[in-house]
């Protein structure tokens, strides 16, 4: 009974996710949709973008929505009135979305590896892409939720990051000339795509570290903003 409550909060949060029809539908349908897209053109690049997209929806959008909804319902305030430290409560709240999404990505990659695409040569890079991307999305989601009064509003407030992360990465890759490809490192999400692509196509240690530094920088920005801006109860 003693010990931190994050496990109990996470278990409750997972149960809530599965009981909420809209969330449950997203959890099931989104990976199917992404899987079909990736299956249609199974290149490392497509799969890497699929990984990023799933993290953005499954972690960033889901968490920004969840945190806003729990705050609006005063459930965050309730959890905070317990004896557990704030950090433990937050870990419990964010963990289910992260684990479910990471699990879905693993299943997606496993299915692709056995059907249309070879297994990644360097699965360590893929794990790095997924974990760092999930952390980045979590930090940014906490910051995003600070500007989000309700679950409905999250549909709008989560769009900018989604557009910048996916659109920015695609734009730089497709349109920027070779000597400007470094611009990609400034875009959140590009590091995730680069690392994930590298899992199949291989990449130098220097490039991997640069990509990781890019994701880490965005994780840091998200975490600092998230912790500074995070609100436990609605504005009065």
């Amino acid at each position: 009974m003693r010990g931190t409550a994050w496990r109990a909060v996470a278990a409750a949060e997972l149960r809530i996710m599965l009981r909420n029809k809209a969330v449950a539908a997203t959890v099931v349908l989104l990976p199917l949709f992404v899987a079909f897209t990736a299956l249609a053109s199974p290149t490392p690049d497509t799969v890497a973008h699929a990984v990023l997209f799933m993290l953005l929806i499954g972690v960033h959008a889901t968490l920004a929505t969840t945190l806003a909804a729990r705050r609006k319902d005063l459930f965050l305030k309730r959890l905070r009135s317990g004896a557990d430290p704030d950090a433990s409560v937050i870990v419990g709240l964010v963990l289910p979305a992260i684990l479910v999404t990471c699990g879905q990505i693993v299943v997606l990659v496993a299915v692709l590896s056995h059907t249309r695409l070879s297994a990644p040569d360097n699965s360590g890079l893929l794990v790095l892409a997924i974990v760092s991307g999930a952390l980045m999305c979590t930090g940014v989601a906490m910051a995003t939720s600070a500007f989000t009064a309700s679950a409905e509003q999250a549909q709008i407030t989560t769009m900018p990051f989604l557009v910048v992360a996916v659109g920015g990465s695609l734009l730089v890759q497709d349109r920027a000339p070779e000597h400007l490809q470094w611009l990609g490192y400034l875009v959140p999400g590009d590091g995730v795509v680069t690392l994930a692509t590298g899992a199949w196509e291989g990449m130098g240690v220097g490039s991997a570290l640069l990509a990781l530094a890019s994701v880490s920088a965005w994780t840091l920005i998200g975490a600092v903003l998230g912790v500074r801006l995070f609100r436990w109860e609605p504005r009065h």
Partner: peptide, 29 residues
């Protein structure tokens, strides 16, 4: 222990689940 002016619950949980969660968060039995 505290009872806030406005109560905050997770709509999807039942009373017994809410209490069990609370037991862990409040660290009381």
């Amino acid at each position: 222990g505290m009872m806030l002016q406005e109560s905050g619950f997770a709509a999807e949980l039942t009373p017994i689940e809410t209490l069990r969660l609370w037991s862990r968060v409040a660290r009381r039995e």
